[in-house]
Design a protein around this nucleic acid. Structure first.
Lengths: 136, 136
DNA sequence: GTAACTGCAAAATATTTGCATCCTT
DNA sequence: AAGGATGCAAATATTTTGCAGTTAC
């Protein structure tokens, strides 16, 4: 789905910054941090706009955050069928120790884990780190 | 292992703040954030000391960080056999949506995931969210 | 025209660093 | 006594908020 359509589909106004940020996600093979977007966007829009845009996109289910051990916040595109507030990005995330690229491995599904008595599972995230296919 | 021994064992000076912070981890059933420690420690030591202590403990392998989707940094005690720089806290983390307590489920081991061609796995983290045994 | 979005300034938070002092060994 | 650890102040970095001006519909 093209940037413009995604925005329209989610009832958002179609603006330059939103289109550009979406393009960045489409163009990137991995996940992006706030800082990445700031760098790659040729400084054409404000820091604050990036914060607000990312927040809006997360709320609408256009992108999702990825948990990381080192406290950085990463964002990646959700698959088309993610609804607002109803994510089911059940895929594994892979972070490369060398190039730091973060991949959404869409084809690897989250394995089942049996929890102890009394725990009810709602969402499950798997983050694997190691060496990616480009860095070997 | 008792706080004092842990410190001695890792070649760290035995100080009030380090002992107290370790006690907090031992007393807590879940993981702690920097802010939790600041609150629960009856403000007896400095913010900066907490930052430095947590960093030291992570370096020594006494505690480990837990990845979270919402950008908060959580810390929890490593098992005794974690060596410095050589963590193998291969357990599942569970975050309760209601009380926000984060558990290290030591008895649930990380399931195996088969990655696509070319990806080499070094470390794997599983974070499950849902409802914990106390909140049902 | 109206509501939504952006940019700028500033406030609020969070984290890091330097240095003098104090404590542990 | 010497090295390590802490506290305070201050520098940085990060994120949030308010508001006026601009843009999309």
């Amino acid at each position: 789905m093209h940037s413009t359509e995604i925005l329209k589909h989610n009832g958002l106004s179609i603006t330059e910054s939103r289109k550009q940020i979406l393009e960045l996600f489409h163009a990137s093979k991995g996940a992006l941090a706030h800082a990445d977007i700031e760098k790659r966007s040729s400084a054409s829009f404000d820091r604050v706009t990036i914060y607000r845009t990312l927040q809006t996109f997360v709320e609408k289910g256009i992108i999702h955050t990825i948990p990381t051990v080192d406290n950085s916040v990463l964002y990646a595109l959700c698959k088309d069928d993610c609804k607002a507030g109803h994510h089911h990005d059940n895929h594994v995330h892979f972070i490369c120790d060398i190039c730091s690229t973060t991949y959404c491995l869409d084809n690897v599904s989250i394995p089942n884990v049996s929890l102890p008595e009394g725990f009810i599972q709602k969402q499950s995230d798997v983050v694997i780190s190691g060496i990616c296919k480009n860095c070997r």
